[in-house]
Design a protein around this nucleic acid. Structure first.
Lengths: 202, 202, 202, 202
DNA sequence: TATGAATGAGTCTTCATTCAT
DNA sequence: TATGAATGAAGACTCATTCAT
């Protein structure tokens, strides 16, 4: 049999990495970072644990690349961008955003939330990852802040310092997602409506 | 020289145990159970790791006794009872309860919340501790449910299935406490008011 | 380069396990079970201590499997069966049996004896191992009892309750083997003849 | 109350030491040396573990002094001397000696046997204790050898090199005592008679 | 590229020994 | 003399990482 050519190899490399990162995200989210064993990721990705070290230099790199990949691919980003262009009222956009955050279809996104949760206030988190988390947070803030302001103009959102509202709301959101997202995945719509009452006028 | 008498020994034992449990609560809360090292607790309590095993038979027992102690000392229980007798409207009582949960004087309470957080959905949690967590949850539910119902009669609380409201509210509360309580300890009153909007009428 | 195929791996695993069990038997026999350090077994087997846990789940399992393996390999069993068919008088068979028990080729057998020694009357011995020891004892009893009876009919063996004779003889045998088998490995034949005088007629 | 005077203190010191050594012998015999915990000895002696270090500098010293004390007090030595003067035939003396070794009344002596057993072939035994064991062995050899020779003259004992007979016999004896002395404590007389058949003519 | 055998640093736990009282 | 609190060295076991094939 002829050896694989360069393209095919590249193809395999690519598939394998995604296979690993996809498995890693879930495992990291389920068990936390330190408690995640390389061997568990390997099992989830149906490969040998040794192979992971062909594609990543360490557990931390698996984590970091997986997070980046999740953000790029699964793209909360894309979602946010599209949402920005939707023809909805500010509070409806916020609701859609929350629904999205809770949705299991966007499970990767929930993985990312839960992983980030786990990172917070751990002093041994590598700077790279901290930076990533910060940038992600900033992204959400940058998305929500104008919506809140707009909503306030429309009278849909209560009159409070917008930055503070965003802070309270995102803090709450990330708290409950990290805590037990499954609770919010039953009866989601109703629960989200109640959650939103925090900041809406009616 | 005469050995210490029983009183003095009892005194030392008592101090030492509290010293350990107090340190343990914080360390467990910060790092999660599995990731908490006995040596870290020892360092935090400024004793040698060996000594912990004079007072507790295992890491798990440290955890269990610490939780019990926190509940007893920090006495959510007493607080809840007194609050029940206060001359306040239902929604005011709920507010006071949330303020208490966030208060730094009851910082142990935040530790307990965060520890419990960490236990959930881990299948290897010892039954004893699961039972403890359940009983604590029940206590809060039993406290909150009648207040919610009463509040609904007064028209202060929105008309939703009370059990579901309690669920959503406690889930949110425990989520945000576990996530990052310090956020809620600045400007607490204002933030709590916003949080309460979830369930109060306008 | 291609990874090792299943056969080669099986080969390595097999070798390694035997290497470990062989070392373990000796170390357990020399030091007793509790006092045997995994690291000592590892050193004796010229591997790292970590590797032992690839092949066995705990010190106890090393012990248990090693005992089983020793019995299977060293095949007292086969020996006993063949001996049963030999064309010798009962007392000659018993003598051959004792010589075999002392023989250095069957030195593993001395390890097993010494290990069993160490287990007796320890209440924390796992049931599995107790069962194994019992079954081994039964095997020897079942072999010896008919020989003793036959010998008594031939007038070669003294007239005592056969069960008691077997008990005394096996107890003595296991005691001396466990104590210091090397003593019996010089001048074995003569010493065994003297030992056998316990139960033979003049 | 007046403080204790020098004599009384000396008295207490003496009692305490014996209390400890007596407990230690049994505990060492039951559990082996390394596996014996100071705390177990302390419990058996009904004192605190700290106190042991007032009387002995280390676990090993407890062991060593206890052995010496057992030999001196309980005095196999005295027994042997008296036995030497008894008006019995050589083989009867040997029998009496074996019965004594097995007797539970002389339990201390059985302790010593079992402890010594445990020491053998352990390379980390302190020289002091090795010397003690050797001297004890020599004592038994010196006692038995003339009896064997005498017995051979009387025709009671088989004609073999006396030194070798003594060796075989003592080796067997120490083996079975170390193995499971309780077995020999039922029906002792009959069992001992059978054991003696090894070296006797009838 | 892919596998899993092999290593060793790190964590819980036990226990001899020390020491304040 | 007597007690038991306190310490830390040592041993079982886990798991990230390396490496031969």
């Amino acid at each position: 049999m002829a050896p694989l050519n360069e393209n095919q190899l590249e193809q395999i490399r690519h598939e394998r990495k995604e296979q690993i990162m996809s498995a890693a995200l879930q495992v990291f989210a389920d068990n936390g970072i330190k408690l995640t064993k390389i061997s568990t990721i390997a099992k989830a990705a149906k490969i040998s644990h040794g192979l992971i070290y062909h594609y990543f230099s360490s557990k931390e790199e698996v984590l970091y690349e997986s997070l980046q990949w999740a953000t790029a691919v699964n793209t909360s980003i894309n979602f946010l961008e599209e949402l920005g262009e939707d023809d909805l009222s500010p509070s409806e956009k916020i609701k859609k955003f929350v629904l999205y955050a809770f949705s299991s279809t966007s499970s990767t996104s929930s993985y990312v939330f839960r992983i980030i949760q786990n990172l917070d206030n751990k002093e041994d988190t590598p700077q790279e990852i901290k930076d990533y988390v910060d940038s992600l947070g900033t992204m959400y803030i940058n998305f929500l802040t104008p919506l809140i302001k707009e909503g306030q103009e429309y009278g849909e959102i209560i009159q409070e310092e917008p930055e503070e509202l965003v802070g309270i709301f995102l803090t709450t959101l990330s708290g409950v997602i990290a805590d037990d997202i499954t609770f919010w995945q039953e009866n989601t719509e109703r629960k989200v409506e109640i959650l939103l009452r925090m900041i809406t006028t009616r």
